[in-house]
Design a protein around this nucleic acid. Sequence first.
DNA 1: TATTAGCACTCCTCTTAATTGAGTGCTAAC
DNA 2: GTTAGCACTCAATTAAGAGGAGTGCTAATA
Lengths: 341, 341
Amino acid sequence: MLTNRQLQLLQVIVDEFVMSAQPVGSRQLSKKEGITYSAATIRNEMADLEELGFLEKTHTSSGRVPSEKGYRFYVDHLLQPQIITSGEVAQIQSLFKKQIVEAEQIIKESANILSELTTYTTILLGPDVQKHRVRKFQIVPLTEQTAVAIIITDNGHVENRTLTLPPGFNPHDIEKMVNILNDRLVGVPLYELPIKLQTEAISVLKSHIHASDSIVRSLLSITSNHHENKVYYGGKSNMLNQPEFHDLEKMRMLMDLIDKESQVQTLFNEQKNGIQIRIGSENNHLAMENCSVITASFLVGEEQQGAIAIIGPTRMDYRRVVTLLDVMANSLSRAFFDKKQ
Amino acid sequence: MLTNRQLQLLQVIVDEFVMSAQPVGSRQLSKKEGITYSAATIRNEMADLEELGFLEKTHTSSGRVPSEKGYRFYVDHLLQPQIITSGEVAQIQSLFKKQIVEAEQIIKESANILSELTTYTTILLGPDVQKHRVRKFQIVPLTEQTAVAIIITDNGHVENRTLTLPPGFNPHDIEKMVNILNDRLVGVPLYELPIKLQTEAISVLKSHIHASDSIVRSLLSITSNHHENKVYYGGKSNMLNQPEFHDLEKMRMLMDLIDKESQVQTLFNEQKNGIQIRIGSENNHLAMENCSVITASFLVGEEQQGAIAIIGPTRMDYRRVVTLLDVMANSLSRAFFDKKQ
DNA sequence: TATTAGCACTCCTCTTAATTGAGTGCTAAC
DNA sequence: GTTAGCACTCAATTAAGAGGAGTGCTAATA
């Protein structure tokens, strides 16, 4: 168990290192306000903290740097919410003032504001479309051979896809088909659509409409499209400002990771409610070795939820980020909840 | 007018510099295959080429580097298409083999393949949606107070937006409204929609339907949404590999530029047909000082067109990029042309 | 016993200086 | 017109030295 003094020191060391990005030494610390004991005492304490695994040295005679375990302890036990300025709160809230604005727009803007306020990179994951339920099918002919199929969900999401009509397929066929689809599949959540299509709809369609196969195949591909959940970014270039990312190879890997939508999903893995912090290697990814990710989820309606992630160096201002993230997630939840009423 | 020897030298110098990223010197050049005269002669010629503004020195006793004017001359007069390997052609063509694939998917993939083949960054601009014509309006109610408005264009593009219904607005009103909209506005290109809505539709709507104002306003905002033209990226992180972008501040500016959709549009400004090359300051942008942009447009249908841009350092392998871009643009045009038939 | 002052030692960082090498311009010879 | 030769320039690399911040350890102090 750590003594009070050790707790205080660990806290100050993390805070200090987050600010300066420089290993912090005993002499420097002893001069800090609130520290009454001498450099030598601090050296002893730091040696103990190092032995316990909370601190590290970059080389034999350098100051100390928090280890991952140190950060972990810090966020678990020492983190207290920061008072953020009313200006910052106002900046966040201003987003939600303009009533007219579209959900998508709000989300996009949120990402930008967050990255501006934190100076880190923000990734915003929209609600999981797969859980939406089908509200309506629609097929609109474009030319003789092409049409666009549209699926509208109960949350107002619209998926669409152009498709090629089989030869001889006429408007009447389309109408019949749309009717069948609407009869059988309204209310089905998107993730179940492929199965339901094949079990419930396909045989009926086949018996009533010739050559419906190819269209069904197109419909299937609408939902199996893997970019279902829209991803929004904010402040990608902020990462370049962090001294730890001056290593270009690291930087490159990180950018690659972030740009790949498929990989982004893993960042949000096992998303629970509330705020989650993953530090360095806890991310299980080489490119994220020196990064921490703080995620928060927000509600959209009753069960739908989106998620925000902020990516920064392990030497991240956890206090500030957690606070801001909390404000933002609440604001988003409230905004979308109101929308649903 | 340049002598043949000067032409040859300029060509070799550009080629060499593109490869090595190092200023090229006379001695080095004299050893190159195809060069029969001595280093001293080359020095004289290079001095002349410098005086003419085609070459520059990085410092008094360094080798020569092509100036912007040098690159310009190179691309205008010395550029001859490179033979690209059949493997590379195959890689591009493979994209278009799978018939099923969606237009959007093809475009996305194209960006990736191009950046992979060129090792530069690709930006792909989808067809200008504003030129599409309205095919059909649709308003689908979601709850008592909300609905989603959908505009389908003749090219199969779908724009949508959730909107709040005025109190007391019932399904019958919606139907009436949709009918009026479809009667009056089908065939109107999107960019004219705001005007037409206000001149032709608004009064009719007002007289037939109460409180149609707010809905019309929502419809207006669908089209004035500025992210009309979808932008796709490929290989953003490739830029980090270029030695000229090791300056982090420059890099940051560039990334910011590229990430801002609004700014991206300017890269494609005054897009003519065929391939266009803009070198360094010709881009009129500070962040692009050391970049060149090669753009090509491709046809989608008759007049619709999309555009590809490849961004790299001024020291770019113009020959290779131009060739690859040409192949890709043609393939895309062909693919989309076929689609329309 | 806990704290602190003192001291030797380590290692990074910053300067400075010297060396090297590729390049240039110019001149004179071919 | 071309080339060889030479003096000169400048960036890049290497080496050495000084300075500074830090540590661990020991011994003195409260």
